Simulated scan of single mutants.
Amino acid sequence: MDERWLTVEDICGYLNVSNETVYKWIEQRNMPAHRVGRRWMFKQGEVDGWVRSGGAADKSASPDAQGTKGE
């Protein structure tokens, strides 16, 4: 059976994040998403793989990202 397409709202609930976060991830972190007309749609397996590979990791949590290295 094929995996069903998920909406932004579905992904927000699945990942427990806001829709603002999802749109930022699409634009800035190459979150796997597909345009269908005016809507963004997702395959859960693609999103799971992206999360596992570190795509959704909080980049500001590392010392390098905070700009404190070398001070």
Rank of each mutant, 00 (worst) to 15 (best):
G54L: 06
T21H: 12
A57V: 07
Y23K: 13
W5M: 11
Y14H: 15
V22F: 05
E3F: 11
G70H: 09
G54A: 09
S18F: 04
R39Y: 07
T21M: 10
G45W: 00
E71Q: 13
W40V: 02
E9C: 11
Y23V: 06
Y14G: 02
P32C: 10
M41A: 09
V51L: 11
Y23R: 14
A57C: 09
K59H: 06
M41R: 13
N16P: 01
V22P: 01
R4M: 07
R39H: 13
F42N: 01
G45R: 15
E3R: 08
G55L: 06
V47W: 01
S18I: 02
G49A: 14
Y14K: 14
P63N: 09
A56F: 02
T21R: 14
P63H: 05
V36S: 13
N30C: 09
L6E: 05
V47F: 09
T7G: 07
M41H: 08
V22H: 05
S53N: 13
A57I: 03
S18P: 03
G55H: 04
D10P: 13
K43P: 00
R29G: 04
L15D: 02
W50P: 00
I11F: 04
N19V: 01
K24M: 05
W25E: 03
N16L: 05
L15K: 13
V22D: 01
G70M: 07
S18D: 07
N16T: 10
G54N: 08
S60F: 08
C12H: 06
W50C: 01
R39C: 09
F42S: 02
G49F: 02
G37M: 05
N16R: 14
W25A: 04
A61V: 13
G54H: 07
L15Y: 03
V8T: 15
G49V: 00
P32G: 05
E46D: 15
Q28Y: 10
K69M: 12
W40P: 02
W25Q: 04
A33E: 01
E27F: 04
G13E: 11
T68F: 11
A61R: 09
W5C: 06
E3P: 04
V8P: 01
D2W: 07
A65E: 08
L6Y: 15
G49E: 11
D48Q: 15
G13W: 00
S53D: 15
V36H: 13
D58T: 07
A65V: 03
A33C: 05
E9V: 08
T68G: 05
A65N: 13
V36W: 08
M41V: 14
M41Q: 12
